[in-house]
């Protein structure tokens, strides 16, 4: 309000004299509790949409729960089923291999691109914006287009290979070929995003360091290795963690690449944990088993992140 602020009796400013210790205590309580009140909305939302589903999923995973019927207590039977199921280990392994195939080239490429974009050049903003375009594309659209590109009979990739004299590859049905094709979709979508994060990290590295390094006779490559990379370490850690989580939850790309079916190919050659979970829940209607897969995946991710950060911390010290 634009009016002049005047002290109003009985509000904020305590009148001198009467009731001071009581009011003072009230102020102290308010001072201490206010921050909690301010962050409460987030935690309420988190409890409703984060914590509750998580706990409820754990509860469901202890039951036999078919779509459209009642829950039946099973204890840890679903976990025993899961841990003795070769399809689960297959999915775990495929998630890992596709994760490596997609994350490593993606982050390396992103680092290189960020380095190039860090230079002063014409149309820099245009290039930076275009980096983010694939990220803004829907997974479904991207995966559909790539599924066509990697088609056996009329796909553009095989056509290009044909020009070089390579025989048509059955991308979809092959083991590594299908994983490679899916990794390409992931790399295409996420490289630009990571490049922009790296670029932001690079811009926060002091120019003085580069000047000092240059004075000492460091080459561009040496500057990159000894100034840029150490300066980017927290950023790199962040992208590695986020990509690892993304890779362990990979779902949309292999689902749509597989024509909307969660089998991940005839031999499950690209069935990720996400697809395996979806298959249990929606193809077979076993929500209890799907919840079990979800929880085991969640625990795996926690372990992965802890390992990640532990390694990073050891390297930092």
């Amino acid at each position: 309000m634009p009016t002049v602020q005047r002290p109003v009796p009985g509000e904020r400013t305590a009148p001198p004299g009467a009731g001071t210790p009581w009011r003072a205590r009230l102020f102290r309580v308010e001072e201490r509790s206010a921050p909690y009140a301010y962050v409460a909305p987030f935690f309420l939302l988190f409890a409703a949409f984060g914590l509750f589903p998580l706990v409820h999923t754990a509860w469901i995973s202890l039951h036999s729960y078919r779509l459209g019927s009642e829950m039946e207590w099973l204890g840890l039977e679903n976990y025993a089923w899961l841990l003795s199921n070769p399809a689960f280990y297959n999915a775990l392994w495929k998630t890992f291999t596709i994760g490596v195939l997609s994350t490593v080239p993606q982050l390396a490429l992103a680092l290189g691109l960020a380095h190039l974009l860090h230079y002063r050049m014409r149309g820099r903003t245009f290039f930076r914006v275009s980096m983010i375009m694939p990220y803004a594309t829907s997974v479904a659209a991207a995966a559909l287009v790539f599924a066509q590109l990697f088609g056996r009979d009329a796909g553009a990739v095989n056509w290009l290979l044909g020009i070089v004299g390579v025989d048509a590859v059955d991308w979809r049905n092959g083991d590594w070929t299908a994983q490679l094709a899916i990794s390409v979709i992931v790399i295409w979508r996420w490289t630009g995003y990571n490049a922009l994060i790296y670029l932001a990290g690079m811009q926060s590295i002091s120019q003085d360091l580069y000047e000092a390094a240059a004075l000492d006779g460091a080459s561009r490559w040496q500057q990159f290795r000894h100034v840029t990379l150490p300066g980017l370490r927290p950023t790199i850690l962040f992208t590695v963690v986020v990509s690892t989580i993304g890779a362990s939850q990979l779902f949309g790309e292999p689902l749509i690449f597989g024509g909307g079916k969660p089998d991940g190919g005839a031999l499950g050659q690209y069935q990720t944990l996400g697809l395996f979970m979806y298959q249990q829940g929606w193809t077979y209607g076993s929500l209890g088993r799907a919840a079990t897969v979800a929880w085991v995946t969640f625990l795996l991710i926690i372990v992965l992140v802890l390992v990640n950060t532990r390694i990073a911390k050891r390297r930092a010290t």
């Binding site: 984060g50 589903p53 962040f238 986020v242 979800a294 926690i302 911390k313």
Partner: peptide
Amino acid sequence: TPRRTTTTALATAVAGTLLL
């Protein structure tokens, strides 16, 4: 600091996983 990064990363990890 590395410590805060760790916490941030962990928080991100948990939040990301919860987005079911």
